[in-house]
Design a protein around this nucleic acid. Structure first.
Length: 713
DNA sequence: ACACTGTGAGTTTTT
DNA sequence: CTCACAGTGT
């Protein structure tokens, strides 16, 4: 049955898939079938070398990549896939620390802080240390801490040879102490602490070395030093390590990814076998040629040249828009045209450099009723109400967590503010137990006055909820929290549109818990649920069954492919982004980002830019991106200035001049008595008597100017 | 304690 | 522009 397993692989792919023991480096260009090779290698190890699935570990960076890999392995090996460990770096470490964490002082149920929680904590540390947050912004301090952790430098080891280093060291030390007190870890700690665990406990390390006989790492170019050491430790005894990566697609150096990990793999593992995959199966010849032309402008890279046997196809098309709205409208028009030629909406993606660019695109999409999904941006799990309910759950799992306690103790309002909270913190200092212990003994906290009553009630509520933790029924637990805390009720009483949408989000959260329970079955636990949620991103919440255009940043598009790709905002200062313009290394990373963007496209690739763009509160006039200029021969360009814009809606100035009777034009902000603020999308009808307005709260409305009292803002 | 207002500052990418 | 925070008045 498995004899034809490798039948459809090319010779290099086959060589990599058949590799048995010892280190293996697969340099896999974009679209060269690397996932295919990894999945086939896993299947081959099992079928041909009879490696027990239990001994195989595959690590990726994103949950999406992990679940996709799992599915594709399942297609090859069937139900055996459940015994293979396929997971992200972070979730692998989270699980491992859940089991072994007590060896390095982590109590059961520890919380994983996201960047938002970390910032809260950082702010408290800054005030406590009396550090001027202007000279030492928390973002900067956290970045320094992150860099230290990713380099495996502990607070004690952190240098103090300059004034600012001294301050960072101080911050790092206090920040870390507070994490420990809260029984919490941040993202970087997951990797850092796992490495520490292994270093301090050789017996535990050995256990996992024995368990994971064959290790595979995807997107190796994005690993940082800590991740590299983690993998190296696990592979130290058997050296059965296979890494897959492409230095041209390294776009995470700002997260301390160390490109040297891939460039120097052969030094680190001297007898490594190296396989290069250079045949691209994804894109047309023209698209690939454009990508190749761009990337050769980078000096710091391994020489390679992707080729394809695919047909030439059409050259990428460059569109010069007047404004960012025009850019979006062009895209909408093209999408409408392409759907008539047989493309589906889910075949198309719009990529941009930064999330804020999605706003205008979404507006125009809404105005044209074009179905779309925005990845990233306002994240589900970052919405206040979701964070509130999660904070309740996290507090139940970990009653030491001060950040979560601060978040929920006055939500909904219980009349407990800063002053009371300080009294609690003070009492807690002399208490060896958890915050729950402290609050249950609230009557012994001095000077509480009238606040004792609400506090005791809160403690009682908290205590009664703990009884529900262990039955694994998280949905029930969440429903009880909604009810007993009065959270839902207080939102319902508010009755505003915003409150109603919050209620909807909370209801959707119940489908998240149900989904988890279905998947986890008898294994379901509050800790398991929380650690899964902490590491999940929005990308994992969407299914691709809906026919809709995808909108996302280029970073989150890595690893994905689409028949049609629109790359937007190709302007100097935006892409490449202004901060990178004077740093050759950063500029090369921007160029790699551009390379990643182009190579997402299978059939058609569009590149767009706007002559003027409203950016950061003002209109800017940027020239076309240098990346476009690096492609003189490889693209066709299309400038609407010479032709009539084919859009039914436009905001080009020429057209406005002819609207003599009309004070409103598309793009204007207006205020409506009942619908609130909105933006004019379209003016139409005889004498321009009708307007279509996208209201921020009420959505799209068609209005007659004669009746609707619109105030121009 | 809290709701409101105005000011001021910083604007990338994400597990 | 948008968010966070300080200061104000209730």
């Amino acid at each position: 049955m498995k004899s034809d397993l490798l039948e459809n692989l090319n010779p290099e792919q086959k060589q990599a898939a058949m590799h048995y023991e010892g280190p293996l480096l697969i340099v896999a260009g974009a679209g060269s079938g690397k996932t295919r090779v990894i999945t086939h290698r896993i299947a081959y190890l099992i079928a041909h070398y009879h490696v027990p699935p239990y001994n195989i570990l595959a690590v990726t960076f994103t949950n999406k990549a992990a679940s996709e890999m799992k599915e594709r392995v399942r297609n090859l090996v069937g139900p055996l896939v459940e015994y293979i460990s396929v997971s992200t770096f972070h979730s692998f470490c989270a699980k491992l620390l859940g089991i072994e964490g007590e060896n390095i002082g982590l109590k059961k149920g520890f919380t994983i802080y996201d960047s938002n929680d970390s910032e809260h904590l950082a702010r408290r540390v800054l005030t406590e240390l009396n550090l001027d947050s202007k000279r030492f912004p928390e973002k900067m301090m956290l970045a320094a801490v992150s860099e230290a952790k990713n380099s495996l430098i502990s607070p004690e080891e952190y240098p103090a040879s300059s004034f600012s280093e001294e301050k960072i060291k101080q911050f790092y030390t206090t920040y870390q102490n507070k994490l420990v007190e809260s029984n919490a870890v941040d993202f970087d700690d997951l990797i850092f602490k796992t490495v520490m665990l292994f270093r301090k406990n050789p017996d535990i390390l050995q256990k996992y070395q024995t368990r994971y006989q064959f290790i595979m790492v995807d997107e190796y170019q994005d690993t940082n030093h800590a991740q590299y050491i983690l993998v190296a430790l696990l592979a130290a005894s058997h050296k059965n390590i296979c890494v897959v990566g492409d230095d041209d697609q390294s776009i995470y150096s700002w997260r301390n990814a160390d490109i040297r990990n891939i460039l120097e793999f052969e030094k680190d593992f001297p007898n490594a076998v190296v396989v290069k995959l250079e045949q691209n199966y994804r894109s047309t010849g023209s698209i690939l040629q454009a990508a190749n032309t761009i990337i050769t402008n980078n000096l710091n890279r391994k020489a390679k040249k992707l080729w394809t046997a695919n047909s030439e196809g059409e050259k990428p098309l460059l569109y010069e828009a007047a404004t960012e709205r025009d850019e979006s409208q062009f895209i909408v028009n093209e999408i409408n045209r392409l759907t008539k030629k047989g493309f589906q909406l889910k075949d198309m993606a719009i990529l941009y450099r930064m999330n804020s660019q999605s706003r205008i695109i979404e507006e125009v999409f809404l105005a044209n009723s074009l179905p779309h999904i925005i990845y990233g941006g306002i994240r589900f799990y970052e919405r206040a109400e979701i964070k509130d309910i999660l904070a309740y759950l996290r507090l139940l799992a970990n009653p030491y967590d001060s950040v979560c306690l601060n978040r929920v103790i006055n939500v909904p309002k219980r009349g407990i503010g800063k002053a009371t909270m300080e009294k609690i913190e003070l009492a807690h200092l002399n208490n060896k137990g958890s915050y729950l212990d402290t609050l249950l003994k609230a009557s012994s906290i001095p000077n509480l006055g009238s606040k004792l009553k609400p506090l005791s009630e809160f403690a009682k509520l908290w205590y009664s909820l703990t009884a529900l933790i262990d039955n694994g029924n998280i949905t029930k637990l969440v429903e009880t929290i909604f009810e007993k805390t009065g959270y839902m009720e207080s939102l319902a009483r508010e009755g505003t549109d915003e409150a109603l949408s919050r209620i909807d989000n909370l209801k959707e959260f119940l489908s998240v818990t149900k989904n988890y329970e279905n998947r986890a079955g008898a294994e379901a636990s509050l800790e398991g649920f929380l650690s899964e949620i902490a590491l999940i991103t929005d990308i994992d919440r969407y299914s691709d069954t809906n026919d809709a255009v995808s909108l996302m940043t280029i970073h989150s598009a890595k690893g994905l492919e689409f028949p049609v790709v629109f790359i937007t905002g190709l302007e100097e200062g935006l892409f490449p982004i202004s901060r990178s313009l004077y740093d050759e290394n950063q500029l090369e990373e921007e160029r790699r980002l551009c390379y990643v963007a182009i190579t997402r496209a299978q059939k058609l690739c569009y590149m767009t830019y706007a002559q003027t763009r409203f950016l950061w509160g003002q209109t800017s006039f940027n020239s076309v991106s240098r990346f476009v200029e690096e492609l003189p021969e490889q693209i066709d360009s299309y400038s609407p200035v010479k032709k009539v814009t084919p859009s039914p809606v436009t905001s080009t100035p020429q057209k406005h001049n002819s609207w003599e009777n009309c004070q409103l034009k598309s793009g204007d902000k207006v205020l409506h008595a009942t619908f609130g603020q909105g933006i004019v999308i379209e003016v139409k009808g005889e004498n321009h008597s009708e307007v279509v307005v996208a209201f921020h709260k009420a959505g799209l409305k068609k209005l007659l100017l004669e009746y609707a009292k619109l105030e121009k803002l």
